[in-house]
Amino acid sequence: MSTLAPSPAPAVPTPARWNRPLVALAAAMAVLAVVTAVLAVVDPQRVLGQNAWFKPLKFALSIGVYALTLAWLVGLPGLRRPRVAAGAAAVATAGLVVEIVVIVWAAATGTTSHFNVSTPLHRTLFALMGVSIVVVWVVTLVVGLLVFRTPLPDRARTFAVRAGVVLGLVGMALAFLMTSPTPEQLDDFQGVAGAHAVGVPDGGPGLPFVGWSTTGGDLRIGHFVGLHALQVLPLGLLVLEAAGRRVAALRDEGVRFRLVAVAVAGYAGLVALLTAQALLGQPLLQPSPVVLAVAVGGAVGLTGLAAGALRRGR
């Protein structure tokens, strides 16, 4: 009795044309990352307990990766309404330029960019940043809707890209949890409205470079993880496809699809858990027994589902 060999993984979709404004923005962010990394070494100035240049460095890296991802999405072959996508890309580029300019200016002047409403100038700049991020979120939503109508080579690829867009939008939206004034700020206004940390003031002890609080909750963690689902899930699918050269079960489209579904469920659960942990005021590395039990139970369950998907492939 003969059996049919699983079909090979489809080739990676190459953009019909890379969006020039986004590619130029990504290149500029690569240069800015190098410059700010050097400044972080030679300039010891600190803002909220951290090197002042770490923030523009982190944002340069994040914006550069986002710009390349969006350039890839809007250039996908067969994307519906390519002119709308190109226009959305141009708007996103402008919004991100506004944000990074304000962040670099704040670092250069030794002040904070986010939540700073201490003067009319700072209020205006913070409001401008807020508008620019809302615009970028809407643009990502528009591109995501176009991607949902674009057929990709197989179900696993389609699911990974679409889920990455959805979770990326959720991660971006989580940033708005940081914009509400804390009770302490309302009781004693000092020109700051909003905070990253929960249960402790911003600027306390934090993890190296990223600065995530080690004494309280930190809403940036769930925001960061969710935002980068745009890259993690599609890249994870490409890793599965590459591993299919050695693991026969991964050459089956159904197996890859089920593994992607497990990964999406796990990723969504991780974003939710990290956000809940932060809102409870718990540091990332000091979870409560309940949070730890949920994390371990989820990991065990997802591992079992992944193993089951592989067994079905065999």
Rank of each mutant, 00 (worst) to 15 (best):
V210I: 14
S213D: 07
G217R: 11
I221P: 01
S213K: 02
R220D: 00
T214Q: 14
P205R: 08
V210T: 14
H223G: 05
P201Y: 09
G222V: 10
G217L: 11
P208E: 06
V200A: 07
T214G: 09
L207W: 06
L207S: 06
V200Q: 05
D202E: 13
H223I: 03
G222A: 10
A195E: 10
D202G: 05
A193I: 06
G222P: 07
G199D: 11
I221A: 13
P201D: 13
D218Q: 04
L207C: 02
G203F: 03
H196W: 10
P201A: 14
P208A: 03
W212P: 10
D218C: 07
I221V: 15
F224K: 08
G194L: 15
D202R: 08
F209W: 13
A193W: 10
H223P: 05
L207P: 01
V200R: 04
H196D: 00
A197I: 07
P205N: 13
T215P: 01
L219H: 05
G216Q: 01
P201V: 11
G199F: 07
P201C: 08
G206R: 05
G206H: 00
A193L: 08
T215F: 00
T214Y: 09
L207V: 12
A195F: 12
F224W: 04
T215G: 04
R220S: 10
G217Q: 15
G216R: 07
F209S: 06
A197K: 03
G222C: 13
W212H: 06
G199A: 03
G204D: 11
G206V: 09
I221G: 01
D202F: 04
A193Y: 10
W212S: 03
V200D: 04
H196N: 06
R220I: 06
G194R: 13
V200G: 04
D202A: 00
H223C: 03
S213T: 14
F224L: 08
V198I: 13
H196L: 01
G203T: 00
G222W: 04
A197T: 15
S213H: 04
V210N: 09
F224S: 01
P205V: 06
D218K: 01
L207D: 00
D202K: 03
G217N: 15
S213C: 11
H223F: 01
V198D: 08
D202L: 00
A195H: 08
G222F: 14
H223W: 08
F209I: 15
V198A: 03
A195L: 09
S213F: 02
L207Y: 08
T214P: 03
L219Y: 01
G204R: 14
P208R: 12
G206Q: 06
G216K: 07
L219G: 02
L219S: 02
H223Y: 07
G203M: 01
T215H: 07
G206P: 07
G199N: 06
P201R: 15
G222D: 12
R220C: 11
A193D: 10
F224Y: 15
G216D: 01
W212F: 11
L219R: 09
V210F: 11
G206D: 00
A197C: 12
A197G: 06
R220T: 14
L207K: 10
G206A: 12
V200K: 03
G222L: 13
G194M: 14
G194T: 14
A195N: 08
W212Q: 09
